[in-house]
Every structure is written in C-alpha cells, then in structure tokens.
C-alpha cells in the first residue's frame, strides 16, 4: 500500500513522465495504487494460468507415445512451473505474497485463463495447445516485454523465449500427425477444430467491452488492443494451418485485400462468458485438483517450516 504523501501530485507527475518517456517503473518507485492493483491482478492471473495450465498437458505425460515426445512434454510442463515461479516473484515485488495469491486462486477470487477449462481429449490436443494456445499467449505476451513495470517486463522476456519453443514443438507435433496415418491426421484435425475458437477467445472480449483495457493501455501495461492482437494471431495462423495440411473451422475465414488482413467469422461470446462464469467443461475439475494438491501438500510445507525453525542457527542449506 502506498501512503498518500502531501505531495502525491508531484510523485504522480514523475510517474506519468516516466511512463510517457517509456522508462521502466521499478519496485521502489512511487506508483498510483490503482496501477499497482492492476499489475497485481494481471500478473497473478498470468501466474495462475501457468500453474493451472500444467494440468491439461500433464494429463498426457504418462501416455506420451514416444520417449522423445515424453521428454519434450515433461520439459514443457516444467517450464510452466518455472514461469509460475518468476511471475509470483514479480508479484511479490509489488508487496503481494505467493501464499496470498494462491489463496485467492483457490477461493475463486482470482482467475486464470479460461482456455484451461477445456479438456485435452487426445494426444493431438498437446500439439494444438502448443500451436494455438501458446501461439495466442505469445502474441499477447511479446508486447508485455515492453510493459512499463520492470520486473514484469523482464520476467516476460524469459517466458516468451520458452513459449516460442513450446509453440514450435506443438506445430511440429501436429505436422507429424497430419503427415502420419489417416487416424493420426484425423486426430490432429479434430484437435484443431476444438481448440481454434477458444484460442481466439484468449485475447479477451472485443475492445468496446473490455473492462480494464483503456487504463492499462494508458499506463503502458498493455500495448495493443484485444482485437488488434486477435487479428494479428489469425493472420499468423492461416498460412501455418495450410502448411500443416489442416483446416481452420471457420467458413467465413478469407483474405480481405482491402484491409490487408483475414476476415473471420463471429466468435461465440456467450460460450466465452459461460466458461468465465464457471460453466466450462473443466472449471470445477481444475480448481478442485489444484486445491487438493495444495491441501495434500500442507503437511510437507509445515514440516519444512518446522525443520527450518529448528535448524535456523545451524544450517541454511537445508532450509525450505
């Protein structure tokens, strides 16, 4: 919490000037309370998405069809845990602890990306998540590397590097399936059919209806509008789908010479809002599993804390 000093006005002027000059705001700098709250909300949601996002993919680790694919998928899920760690750390620089944020996730007071409320039904879904979901995430996240808040921007540089590897492995996985047996090709097409529209929803509601967009853009937390990023993503995916030999499930999808972009069909925002409200296929499952893991681990965390308390003077190396 920032205290209101008598000369808040001049602090605010310094802050505004720094943002206007594209300088980074650092943890010890003065910042408006609403800027801090907005960042905590966004970083927490991102961190929660990383750790909830481990579930649909971990769902296939034990069934991965080759040892090479298994190693790649394990490394990817591990990266996601690592991203969760950096992001919770970035939120800590704003004065909010990981425990506090996890508590908000578990009690439903903070959200994670709705895309993870869809199930991974076949092995090809691992590829579709990499290609489309991670692809959409990168489109959203690359501009965040220039976000006005320093620790978040720096965390995003590393996250984006790894996400780009994830996206490529997803594409390559789908390509292998698409060029494989008839059953494998059908599996790939089915996965793309199911993940395409939810991926477009990942950019959030249309610009006119987005609750936090305008202020976030002014603060340079956000750099592009939802619709701009969605369009960029569609334009990137269309030629990639062709190279994959797969179709995108949108009869209205076509190149618009005049706009220099692809036109695409209407998004089912009713579905988006339903999933957001908790009525997606896996909302309960994901959060129940997360809570269960946390509760099951309580005795382990208590043991680590008790041990660290007993041995505080004698050793640091075995501390939790």
């Amino acid at each position: 919490m920032t205290t209101m000093a008598p000369d808040t006005g001049s602090y605010e002027a310094v802050f505004d000037a720094a943002v206007a000059a594209d300088e980074r705001i650092e943890p010890r700098d003065w910042m408006p309370d609403a800027y801090r709250a907005s960042l905590v909300r966004q970083i927490a949601q991102h961190a929660h998405s990383e750790i909830i996002g481990m579930q649909p993919e971990a769902n296939w680790i034990t069934r991965a069809p080759s040892l090479r694919r298994k190693a790649i998928l394990m490394a990817k899920v591990q990266d996601e845990a690592g991203h969760g760690l950096y992001l919770y750390s970035a939120a800590e620089t704003l004065g909010t602890s990981r425990d506090e944020l996890l508590d908000k996730l578990h009690s439903g007071r903070q959200k994670y990306s709705s895309i993870f409320n869809y199930p991974t039904l076949t092995w090809a879904d691992v590829g579709a998540i990499g290609w489309l979901v991670d692809g959409a995430a990168i489109t959203n996240q690359v501009p965040l590397c220039r976000c006005s808040y320093g620790p978040y921007a720096r965390a995003m540089v590393r996250v984006c590097k790894e996400e780009s590897f994830h996206q490529r492995q997803g594409y390559e996985l789908l390509l292998t399936l698409s060029r494989g047996t008839e059953a494998q090709h059908a599996m790939a097409q089915d996965a793309v059919d199911r993940w395409w529209w939810p991926s477009l929803m990942m950019f959030g509601p249309p610009d006119g209806e987005s609750a936090h967009s305008a202020q976030s853009m002014a603060w340079k937390i956000k750099r592009h509008s939802n619709d701009e990023l969605r369009q960029r993503f569609v334009d990137i995916c269309v030629p990639q789908a062709e190279s994959l030999g797969l179709t995108l499930p949108d009869p209205d999808l076509r190149w618009n010479e005049e706009r220099g972009h692809h036109d695409f069909g209407p998004i089912d925002w009713a579905e988006f809002h339903e999933v957001l409200r908790g009525n997606g296929p896996c909302n309960d499952q994901r959060i129940t599993r997360r809570r269960q893991a946390h509760e099951d681990g309580a005795w382990v965390r208590e043991a680590a804390a008790a041990y660290a308390g007993k041995h505080r003077d004698t050793q640091g190396e075995a501390g939790a």
Binding site: R289, A293, G297
Partner: peptide
C-alpha cells in the same frame, strides 16, 4: 512424472 501438477509446493514441481 505422475507428480506433475500435484506437488506440495511449486519448487518441487
């Protein structure tokens, strides 16, 4: 690998 998503603390994931 069966622990993925179930570990007691994120560092252990």
């Amino acid at each position: 690998a069966e622990w993925a998503g179930n570990a007691p603390v994120l560092e252990e994931e």
